[in-house]
Amino acid sequence: MTATPSEAPHLQPSATQPQAAPSALAVDGLSLSFGGVTALNGVSFTVAVGEIRAVIGPNGAGKSSLLNAVSGLYRPDSGRVWLGGHSFAAVPTDRLAALGVSRTFQNLALFKGLSVLDNVAAGLTHRLRAGVLAQVIGLPTARRERADAYDRAEALLAFLHLEDARDRPVGTLPYGVQKRVELARALVARPRLLLLDEPMAGMTLTEKQELTGCIRVARDDLGATIVLIEHDIGVVMGLSDRIAVLDYGRLIGDGTPEAIRNNQAVIDAYLGVAHDLEAGEGI
């Protein structure tokens, strides 16, 4: 890491951000390896405010590692992450929600023992101001806060067609439904930046189309900037404003869907294979 003397370890004003336009997220020279495996190799790209930004690449390309580095679950070996005007060598996961960032996981990361509604409402718990005692006693402020959080959670359930599952323990639901619950939990706090790691994996065509609509609404109406990891090239091409392509931890392409479609390096490394795969995959 080549830190200039003025760089504080965690925080820095946005004035020195690498590019002119304000971006919701920027990663700069991000590298990360596990033992001998290089998961990320000097990856740099930006996500503009209000953009739907897809990240694609074959399995093991480093897509999830990228999101994990951005959410502070992995500590990069070098490089920096810019989030909401701050630059981080390692993003503090505890502050993610306060920074307006939320995410979903490639493998479900739900609270299995809690109901769907409680799972979604948990996405707002970090905002509650009432202390434990106020909650236990049931002071009016605590009650109001809680009711408000649950109202918002209910609205999200309606948005993602989850009302029927509302009181079910989330562990008992089908995979596709659980995926939607996780998206609801991520959306309920109205994040400025939403990181989605394969939200449509294991979904039927109809479910994918529905979710595509939801993601678009999340951006258009809820004002979330979205980073989307997705394998379905059809979905990616139709939904995203720009696409970053990773292969063996390197950024091998970055541009509009049109540009990516015609990028020879990308076609060689990935798209050709993916189309073959998709043809064979069916639903």
Partner: peptide, 27 residues
């Protein structure tokens, strides 16, 4: 009252998925 409160739910969240709990900002 405690286990039924948001704090009680947060405890269960912690039990079920500590990483997710951290990501959504639970202390």
């Amino acid at each position: 009252r405690l286990v039924d409160s948001p704090t009680g739910r947060a405890l269960a969240a912690l039990r079920d998925h500590e990483t997710a709990a951290r990501v959504i900002g639970l202390p």
